[in-house]
Simulated assay, not measured.
Amino acid sequence: MPVDGLLFDKDGTLFLFEATWESWALSVLLRLTDSNLIRARQIGHEIGFDVDAQKFRRDSVVIAGTPSQIVSALRQHTAYSAEDLETLLNEQAAVAPQVEAVALVPFLNVLRQRGLRVGVATNDAERPARAHLDGAGITDLLDFISGYDSGHGAKPDPGPCLAFARAMNLAPERVAMVGDSLHDLHAGRAAGMKTIAVLTGLATADELAPFADVVLDDIGYIPAWLDREGQ
């Protein structure tokens, strides 16, 4: 069955995960600890981030978790209220540097020229997500944007995927969910969609392949995949 819509994860898919979120994690930890490196290292360990190496563990809550889940992991180590802590996380996320996985404007224009509907479903909050998409100049090229707080739920639940299908008036089986994590692929599968895995996050091809219809190096290979599928 042909694909009429593509729903993209944001971090690790449209944007390179490490380039963005390692910088974010360091800035958050230094802000929380008033630049006390010993405390920053301790708290970083709790969220799966090595401050000295500036690297995430593969099981870090930051990789696929929502801001509220990250708040829960951090809360016991700070005097911030949950609300203030989530505000701080979103503020730092909105200004985190973004490195595009491919040149996004021409890539999305190619998809739109094919007649595809295109959306983004992220476990980030919608406001910083829109700031990232605005910064890349691609908001107007998207038909749908959903964050974990947009009212559709968060991945790996299928809610954001099904919301995109409904908004685009597409059957889920005519949509492909594109992502770099198991959360993305599980959400797509649960929604009855095709699933495309990309290797611009932290997960390996061996981890993603059992849950993906195809594993690609990055989203730039999607047009060629569509051609091979006869679209």
Score class of each variant (00 low, 15 high):
99 V>Y: 05
51 V>D: 03
195 T>K: 05
24 W>N: 10
117 R>G: 03
183 H>W: 12
125 A>E: 04
200 T>E: 11
135 G>W: 02
145 I>H: 01
185 L>H: 10
173 E>K: 13
211 F>M: 04
213 D>Y: 02
227 D>I: 12
59 D>L: 00
27 S>T: 14
153 G>M: 07
10 K>R: 05
102 V>E: 07
94 A>P: 03
74 L>M: 09
34 D>F: 06
160 P>L: 07
15 F>P: 02
19 A>S: 14
4 D>M: 10
51 V>M: 08
188 G>M: 08
29 L>D: 04
133 L>Q: 02
94 A>C: 05
66 T>K: 07
5 G>V: 03
5 G>I: 09
60 S>H: 07
124 D>W: 10
226 L>E: 10
157 D>A: 15
89 L>N: 07
60 S>K: 10
184 D>P: 03
20 T>Q: 15
151 G>D: 06
115 G>D: 07
95 V>I: 15
103 A>R: 13
217 D>Y: 05
48 G>Y: 10
89 L>I: 13
145 I>W: 01
94 A>Q: 02
79 A>I: 04
121 A>G: 13
198 V>K: 05
183 H>P: 04
70 I>K: 00
73 A>V: 02
151 G>W: 11
21 W>R: 02
154 A>D: 05
108 L>P: 05
214 V>E: 13
26 L>V: 13
90 N>S: 11
2 P>A: 00
151 G>S: 08
40 A>V: 08
16 L>M: 05
129 A>V: 04
188 G>K: 05
220 G>P: 07
98 Q>M: 14
35 S>V: 05
73 A>Q: 12
73 A>S: 15
31 R>Y: 02
154 A>H: 12
92 Q>C: 11
52 D>A: 12
167 A>G: 12
208 L>Q: 11
128 P>N: 08
90 N>I: 12
79 A>Y: 01
106 P>I: 09
32 L>Y: 07
10 K>W: 14
150 S>A: 14
161 C>N: 14
25 A>M: 09
121 A>K: 01
12 G>A: 09
24 W>I: 09
11 D>Q: 04
145 I>F: 04
95 V>D: 03
176 A>P: 03
168 M>K: 00
20 T>W: 03
189 R>N: 14
194 K>R: 15
41 R>P: 04
114 R>P: 00
127 R>I: 12
